[in-house]
Each structure stands twice: as C-alpha cells, then as structure tokens.
C-alpha cells in the first residue's frame, strides 16, 4: 500500500514540472512583444523597457525559468499589473469562495446522483429508470451558464426565493477569518450572515451540480446493475436476507468504489466549471478573477490562477487515486 502511494506520488513530479513549464511559457507565447501587449498601444518606450526589466524578460530563458521556479516555490506569484497587489494574496482571498461552491455542488451531485442511480438500477426498465436516464442524458448536454440564467429568471426573479448575485446580502458584514464565507459566518456565530450566505449558495451550487449529478447517476446505475448480477448477491438473497439489506449493504458498498473515482474527478473539473457559474452569479471566486484578468491583460494574475487551478486538479486526482486504492483491495495488494 505504502509502495503504491509512493509510486503514485513520484508520478506527480514530472507532471508538476510540466505544469510549471507551461505556466511559465504562457507569457513567452504571446504573439508579438508581450510587454507591449500588457501595456497597450499608448505605452512609451521607457515604460516598456522598465516593465521588461521588472519582469526580467531581458535574461536568457533558462535563467528566467529558474527564477520563476524559485519564486513559485516560495509562494511568490508576482504582482498584479493592474492593482499592484500580490497575486498570491488575491487568490488566497478568492479561492475559498470557489472551493465552497465546488464542495456544495459536489455534495448535492453525490447525494442526488447516488440516490437516483441506485433506485434506477434496482427498478431497471421502470418508468423511474427511464425518466432518470433521459434526464441524465439531457443533463450532460446542458450548457452550465444557461442553466444558471434560467434558474436566475425562475427562482430569483419570478418566484423570488433566492438571491441571484454575490456571496452575501448587502449590509451584512462578514467576519474575515478563513475567507470561506460559510465557515466565517459560522465561526463568528452571525446567524443573519449564515442564512444570507447559504441562500446565496443555493442557485450557483445547483447550477454547477447539473453535469456531475447526471454523470454520477449514470455511473451509479451501470455499476449497480453490474454488481446486482454477481453471484454473491444471489447468495445473499438465497440466505434470506431482506431485499433492502442486500441492495444497500452488499451491492451499494461494492458499487461505490468506481463511483468514488468519478466523484473525485468531477470535483476537479468543477473548479473549471466554476468560471462560468461565478460569472453568471457574480461571485468573487477565482473563476471571476481570471476572466477579469484576461480582459485587463493582467498576465501574472492569469498565470497565478491557472497554476493554482492545475495544482488543485492534480492533487485532488492524487487524493482520489489513493482513496481508490484504500477502498479497492485489488490495488492495495498488487
């Protein structure tokens, strides 16, 4: 087991190096003079020369890369070209908002996906099964941002059930301890803030959950169908165990193994999908941050967000693999 984890950890190293190269090269791949692009048409030669010196673009490329690596290793992602604040600080302030959204979405997706997939498999060929699978197929084909807009129109405007923008209502002061809005309102014991944060989270997290819920439901159904056909299920039934016990204790437990992988992978890609959801709901997460940075030609900020996003993705995938090994004895003893 330890050997497996060690091997899996070692495999991450070249990927990390590759990510750092790609992120480093982003600035160098800009067609034309990157400094000119960053500063815009009206920049004077003097300004261009100064920024080029500042960014160290006059040095040989391997020196630049080594310096970049050294800086990143010390947690320094440079300064924003617009606000001049440290990129790390801005990301640290906004990433928790994105993580909270992603966690809420994956929770919703897992609960409903597992439930629907399970019931559909147990009642295969029933109306519920048919309905769930059609819905799942439509679900994976829906543009996330459009679902968001539709939810805003329906639940935000017409029914007026939930707020449609931001993280917390205007006028409510959020204590800033961890930068996680939900956690901060809990820690400070501010009930009004907690309710406001929760209600602001409902529509975005449902929006972001649409695709994973469909994928998890399909995956759960197909693995459950597979497991339900196994001999040990027949044995359990033959022993006279209750149907419920056979399904939820024997079958579901084994069907969960591949589902865990899917949940983990979905969590990683949710960080990407959050870009669109945050735009629709005007949530100040890193998705919103990177889009504004692109329009502002704020390359250090774009590089920072892409780097942090990729690292998060890699390490969630790593965690999923380790968890999978823990759950699946076939890998553990290999």
């Amino acid at each position: 087991m330890l050997a497996y984890i060690a091997r899996r950890l070692l495999m991450v190293v070249p990927v990390l190096v590759g990510i750092s190269v790609v992120v480093f090269l982003m600035v160098h791949l800009i067609p034309g003079d990157p400094v000119q692009v960053m500063l815009g048409e009206r920049a004077t030669d003097e300004e261009i020369a100064r920024l080029r010196q500042e960014l160290g673009l006059n040095d040989p490329i391997y020196v630049q890369y080594a310096r970049f690596l050294g800086r990143v290793a010390h947690g320094d992602l440079g300064r924003s070209l617009r606000s001049n604040s440290r990129v790390v600080d801005e990301i640290a302030a906004r990433f928790p908002v994105t993580i909270e959204l992603a966690v809420a979405s994956i929770l919703i997706a897992t609960v409903f996906g597992l439930l629907a997939g399970c019931v559909a498999a147990v009642h295969q060929h029933s109306l519920f099964d048919y309905f769930t699978m059609v819905l799942a197929l439509v679900g994976v084909s829906m543009p996330v941002f459009w679902i968001g807009l539709m939810l805003v129109i329906l639940f935000g405007r017409h029914l007026g059930w939930f707020p449609i923008a931001g993280v917390v209502a205007d006028g409510i002061e959020l204590a800033r301890v961890t930068n996680f809005p939900l956690l901060d309102s809990l820690l400070s014991g501010n009930v009004a803030a907690l309710r406001s944060v929760l209600s602001h989270l409902v529509l975005p997290s449902i929006t972001l959950a649409t695709i994973p819920v469909a994928i998890i439901a399909r995956m759960t159904r197909s693995t459950m169908l597979n497991v339900l056909r196994q001999d040990y299920i027949r044995t359990a039934k033959a022993k006279g165990l209750a149907h419920r016990r056979v399904v939820y204790k024997h079958a579901l437990k084994n069907a969960l193994v591949p589902v865990v992988t899917v949940v983990g992978l979905q969590f990683g890609s949710l960080l990407g999908g959050a870009v669109l959801t945050e735009t629709v709901f005007a949530r100040p997460g890193i998705g919103r941050l990177v889009v504004t940075a692109i329009f502002a030609r704020d390359y250090p900020m774009v590089q920072g967000v892409v780097l942090v996003g990729a690292l998060t993705f890699v390490f969630t995938n790593l965690a999923v693999d380790v968890l999978y090994a823990l759950l699946n004895p076939k890998i553990r003893y290999a």
Binding site: V15, G18, I19, V22, V23, M26, L29, I30, P31, G268, S269, L271, G272, G273, V275, L276, V290, V291, A293, I294, Y299, V302, V305, V306, G309, A310, F313, V314
Partner: peptide, 15 residues
Amino acid sequence: AFPYILLAIGIMAIL
C-alpha cells in the same frame, strides 16, 4: 493535468 476550461482560458489569454 489542467482542468479543461481553465486550460482553454489560459490559451485564450495568450492568443
């Protein structure tokens, strides 16, 4: 190793 949309956005930032 990059989330799909994030990589596409990164490339869009370059191009």
